[in-house]
Design a protein around this nucleic acid. Sequence first.
DNA 1: GAATTAAACATACAGGCTGTTTGCATGAAT
DNA 2: ATTCATGCAAACAGCCTGTATGTTTAATTC
Lengths: 197, 197
Amino acid sequence: MNIKTRMSNQDRSDMTRKALVKAARELFIEKGYGEAGTPELVRAAGVTRGALYHHFEDKQALFRAVAENELAEVAKLIERSATTASTTMQALESGTRAYLDAMQASGRAHLLLVEGPAALGVQTMKQLNSDSAAHTLRDGLAAAMAAGEIPQLPLDALTAILDAAFDRAALEMAQGASRTDIETALSALFRGLAAAK
Amino acid sequence: MNIKTRMSNQDRSDMTRKALVKAARELFIEKGYGEAGTPELVRAAGVTRGALYHHFEDKQALFRAVAENELAEVAKLIERSATTASTTMQALESGTRAYLDAMQASGRAHLLLVEGPAALGVQTMKQLNSDSAAHTLRDGLAAAMAAGEIPQLPLDALTAILDAAFDRAALEMAQGASRTDIETALSALFRGLAAAK
DNA sequence: GAATTAAACATACAGGCTGTTTGCATGAAT
DNA sequence: ATTCATGCAAACAGCCTGTATGTTTAATTC
């Protein structure tokens, strides 16, 4: 597979793109976006800087590709784990667990929650998120409100705040915090919301 | 005051340090840590790069000084607004409002919550935070638990999650989100916690 | 209070990194 | 078979960071 002779342009492009994204993912995690240099990056990917700048407009675009990859993976994992829950709140809680699981891939939380907003900007990150699957939370909350399972509250604000809570939960877990502790605290928040009529 | 002749070394140092931190604060906000170059920075501060590297070990140290400044300001504002509340939960809620207020200074939320973790690292930022005054939340929650106002929950996890919620609340508000919406959602979370026995 | 030392810069320099340009080789199209 | 386009490779230009060196002026010492 590594032999570069006798290959269609398509395949060659796919290979180098993937090699670049993979190496970038690792180096961005290890050193952070700012400290990860393209010379080292392409060395790790086994290509040249020429290839990089042929496939990506700039370093930022490469990071964006990495982030989009991660988000797609998260979305896939969440969809895959979607079970049939009887109440909307149960669906939300199981969705939360799926999200926490999906975010435990090594370095993913750091990449998406720390490097991403600084490298691409908060706005762009928000955009990428909603392009993939973050609307899950928003929709779930809206449904729960409609079903009367939680009180009527400003949807955008509540979504943002709970989203942040989940993100931090994922980040803490990725850094070694106790999963049961985190889930206990999150559940208490959820159940409290439901009780708070 | 701008005449640089006949000044003690102390005063000269203080002046240039302050000028650097001020200019850095603005440029880091405007362009982000990575894109803010020291040549432009020192021009804005009215000093030379020589002065910068005389006072700060490197660009990161300058950012750190900016962040510490902001955190100190936040802590000051929170302490100043500390009122006597009858219940621990009331104290927590008023503390929350004070925090949100303090974080509305232009660019502050972005600096501390977006640039900071990427530029200095999540760990260092956490450290700086706890060095200044973030333990307020943790202590408040512990007190509320001890007083039986909220259920017994893993303190670290709950603190982290609520901290994240407040941070995002501050960030959203700084970006134009409705304050009443945010406070409504936050209050619901709090009251829910209290109810969730 | 003269001489020495140390602080606060200013300037010049070295290396590295990003993005661009130019050249080349090979697969695709005609 | 020839032309064209794609996928790179390599060299280049500009900028930026951190360091090293020089200069001025305040602080200290004798």
